[in-house]
Design a protein around this nucleic acid. Structure first.
Length: 812
RNA sequence: GGAGGAUUAGCUCAGUUGGUUAGAGCACUUGCCUUACAAGCAAGGGGUCAUAGGUUCGAGUCCUAUAUCCUCCACCA
């Protein structure tokens, strides 16, 4: 028996235990069913979860449950992205340490402890919200298989000539002291000063504005726009750098914008990206100014050894003392920062490993068409990113907690040495190559850098596939679906496609399901540091339970950002109560009924069955497009309006069957009630798996084939031609009578005398075996019917003069 | 600077390929204790669909501008 009230606290826990016990999410191997494989984002271990995680993970999870109910063989692993900078930053922050101050192995141990702690928290939470992953298939990006696959991927790229090592300018974070990739850049607006500095050109003064005077010692050229009338005569001449007194060439280049500053730019090594491009293009000398730790190179006069801010002030002071500073103008400008720490990035010259992506732009663009993007507009974001690529993908990081490069360098000739596949994974700092370099040398220097965390997470489809292993799972490629939020299109999606194309010549998935963000308020991402996460996920779950949160989640449109207000979740309660109470009604009315009994249905019962059939088709069409919100809307309409408000009210008296007034026609209603409600539960179960399972266990278990709703399949209900139209006509009748009573402030139980109904010939045929339902539902003493093209309803009213009647005519 | 999205009821949002009178939930008004549910039911009020043009027999929907907001990207000397 269902309790009078549903208590999610106990029920959700109980159902999750049941699913675990039954192995409801288990992948039991390949069989004759279609495989539905899911590449779900391994969350980065970077701190606490927030509602945004629940939002995007459950949206995808609903699609998975839908496919499970279609009878597909679901392969749903759940990984964690525990390696890399996010974890390192977390450890540094939590323990108040800096990685560089500790022995490498000690720091790695701390990372391992911390990630284990957080992974447990994450996993508990995801299980609490009902994520139906097969947790035994899980992986984390630092485990042995991941390291192996990741290194194998790297070696394959080296062999294909697509991964290379080169010394060149690279984006560098002085705070994290590592190289980073274009995709890891953020930007930030800061207060700064435009310093107007006098340079000398053949005895004449020119003014140059710069925000980074500390780079003066690294000035290697001056640029002006060749179209700039003011300065074009300067091109080809030499300028003297103030304070340092070296001479640099003045070059014309169209990249200089005439209206910025004074229209004259000093080019340093390397102040910004343009400096770098100019250095390359004009083969300018390289003057090392910035060190990896962000200080000024010791060999730079005046400011050597200082940090950039001190150096900036020092140079300005010196210039001012010598009368070379024209003015300092306060401005706001945007600088690139590192997304992991928020500090300004620099560009330094250093040897790094790269993956060639610039040369395959065309293939990457074509690849977009081989994937179904949900929603479609997200494809454009990917294409924009690919079209704007400027750097090859730098994958080496001068950090600690990551997948090591399987690389040593020959001590003699510097040749790169790579291990045999059978020896993977290797840690070059611990293992030595059992090989001799072709130069004859047997001594090697290990590569100490680790891989960018994306270099590993981008092979998640290959980790699932066990790429290159003896038990490789070929049936998992391409995977059926990947999901994530739109922020990581430029990283995870992009890098995964790169790897997929290089290794297997094919995109990694058929479908991409991309969810929106949950914003705390317009335009602001939820983040713990800003303190705008209104409640923690666990608090939310304690307050509302998983199903209510999921119901809210499902009402948002795929790919669209939304903002979270706990009171929105509150309105899910109405639905939960309605579903629960309707289940109690069904339970009471079908207690002694065997749903497998063959029963001839009355027309009204055929209507609700057909309408349910039709609803499922609409639901399926939306689900197949990954439009979970639209799909839920279809059932909501059917369940709340047609099923509860109309059908149950119409069939009620027949279900009570007092004094056996309706005989066997009671069974018809029981049959319809039972089969339709079961289908309603199935359709709702991807959204609210716990309450639907709880009801299923009480009402249907043992009567149906499956042991759990979670593992059952949708059943196509019969469709009876014409009954849906008939049902609409009946709804019109009921609605008109209700309005009649409401207008008179009457109770719905108030008796009416005679009800005159006009319907089409076809509908009247249906009405024959259902007229008693209309009579009971409207409390009419008697019903007269007549043939009419449209549905007409007349209720003779005693209080108005003869001949006047309330008339309702509809012609739908 | 470029791209994409948004702008619909007091609030939060749906609105398929252009097609009768633009929908839902919340809020509001009125009525109803009806043997699943008063956390409910029934009925109702409330909209110049951001603005201005245009295409069309017909525009919330398509086109062009404008305004405001959001997101992504670029620039950021």
């Amino acid at each position: 028996m269902l309790d009078k009230k549903y208590s999610f606290g106990s029920a959700e826990k109980e159902m999750q235990e049941l699913w675990n016990e039954k192995g409801a999410y288990k992948f039991k191997g390949v069989d004759d069913r279609k495989i539905y494989s899911v590449d779900t984002p391994p969350p980065t271990v970077s701190g606490k979860l927030h509602i945004g995680h629940i939002f995007s993970f459950t949206q995808a999870e609903m699609a998975v449950r839908y496919h499970r109910l279609l009878g597909e063989n679901v392969y749903y692993p759940f990984g964690f992205d525990d390696n890399g900078l996010p974890t390192e930053r977390l450890v540094e922050k939590e323990e108040g340490i800096f990685a560089k101050d500790l022995p490498r192995s000690e720091f790695i141990d701390k990372c391992n402890l911390t990630k284990d702690k957080y992974i447990k928290e994450f996993k508990d939470l995801f299980q609490r919200v009902g994520i139906s992953a097969d947790w035994d298939l899980g992986y984390d990006t630092i485990n042995e298989l991941s390291r192996k696959v990741s290194q194998r991927s790297f070696i394959d790229l080296v062999n294909k000539g697509k991964a290379y090592r080169k010394e060149m300018p690279v984006l560098w974070c002085p705070c994290c002291q590592t190289s980073i990739a274009q995709a890891e850049l953020d930007d930030k607006e800061i207060d700064s000063y435009f310093n107007y500095i006098n340079f000398d050109v053949e005895g004449k003064k020119i003014e140059i504005a710069t925000t980074r005077p500390e780079f003066l010692g690294g000035c290697v050229a001056i640029f002006v726009n060749p179209d700039d009338e003011r300065y074009k005569d300067l091109i080809g001449k030499e300028a003297t750098v103030p304070l340092y007194n070296n001479k640099v060439k003045i070059i014309g280049d169209s990249k200089v914008s005439m209206d910025k500053g004074t229209g004259i730019v000093m080019c340093c090594t390397f102040g910004d990206q343009t400096d770098m491009e100019w250095q390359k293009e004009y083969n300018l000398p390289i003057k090392k100014v910035i060190e990896p730790d962000g200080t000024i190179n010791k060999d730079v006069p005046i400011v050597g050894g200082m940090n950039t801010l001190d150096a900036r002030m020092k140079i300005v002071e010196e210039l001012n003392n010598k009368g070379l500073l024209v003015k300092s103008e306060k401005i706001k400008h945007t600088v690139n920062t590192h997304e992991r720490c928020g500090n300004e990035i620099e560009i330094i010259n250093s040897p790094q490993w790269y993956i060639d992506i610039l040369s395959i732009k065309d293939e990457l663009i074509k690849a977009a068409d081989e994937i179904n993007w949900h929603p479609e507009t997200m494809k454009k974001r990917y294409l924009d990113w690919v079209n704007n690529l400027k750097w090859d993908w730098c994958i080496s990081r001068q950090r600690y907690f990551g997948v090591p490069f399987p690389v040593w360098y020959c001590k003699e000739c510097g040749e790169v040495m790579i291990p045999d596949d059978k020896d993977l994974p290797v840690d070059p700092l611990k293992n030595v190559p059992n090989k001799t370099c072709k130069c004859g040398c047997k001594e090697f220097v290990p590569e100490s850098a680790v891989m960018d965390t994306w270099a590993t997470s981008s092979v998640s489809p290959l980790i699932n596939k066990k790429y290159g292993e003896s038990d490789e799972r070929d049936y998992l490629y391409p995977m059926s679906m990947r999901s994530h939020a739109h922020e990581i299109i430029r990283t995870w999606t992009f890098y995964s496609i790169v790897k997929g194309l290089y290794h297997l010549g094919q995109v990694p998935w058929k479908n991409l399901m991309i969810s929106g963000f949950v914003l705390a308020k317009k335009g602001e991402k939820i983040s713990k540091s800003k303190g705008n996460a209104k409640m923690s996920p666990n608090e939310l779950l304690d307050t509302y339970g998983a199903d209510m949160i999921r119901y809210w989640t499902s009402s948002n449109k795929l790919g669209t950002d939304t903002w979270f207000d706990p009171t929105d979740v509150e309105s899910s309660r109405r639905f939960m109560t309605k579903l629960w109470n309707s289940a109690r009604f069904v339970e009471m009315q079908t207690a002694n009924f065997d749903p497998n009994e063959e029963v001839e249905l009355t027309s009204i019962d055929k209507w609700i069955v057909s309408k349910c059939h039709e609803t499922f088709e609409r639901y399926k069409a939306q689900m197949d497009k990954y439009e979970i919100g639209m799909a839920r809307g279809e059932i909501d309409n059917f369940f709340w309006r047609d099923f509860c408000d109309y059908y149950l009210e119409i069939a009620k008296e027949r279900l009570y069957n007092q004094d056996n007034k309706y005989g066997d026609k009671q069974k018809s209603a029981q049959k319809a009630l039972s089969m339709v409600f079961l289908e309603v539960l199935k359709m709702y179960s991807p959204f609210v798996p716990h309450i639907t399972e709880k009801i299923y266990q009480e009402l249907y278990k043992g009567k149906e084939k499956g042991e759990t709703l979670c593992n059952s399949t949708y059943k196509e209900l019969p469709y009876y031609d014409g009954t849906v139209e008939f049902g609409e006509a009946v709804k019109d009748v009921v609605s008109t009578v209700r309005k009649y009573k409401t207008d008179r402030n009457q109770s719905m139980k108030e008796r009416i005398g005679i009800l005159n109904i006009g319907m089409t010939q076809e509908n009247l045929e249906f009405l024959k075996d259902s007229i008693m339902d209309i009579k009971s539902c409207t409390s009419a003493d008697d019903i007269n019917v007549s043939v009419s093209d449209e549905t007409t309803i007349n209720i003779p009213t005693p209080e108005v003069e003869k001949g006047q009647m309330l008339v309702k005519e509809t012609g739908k």
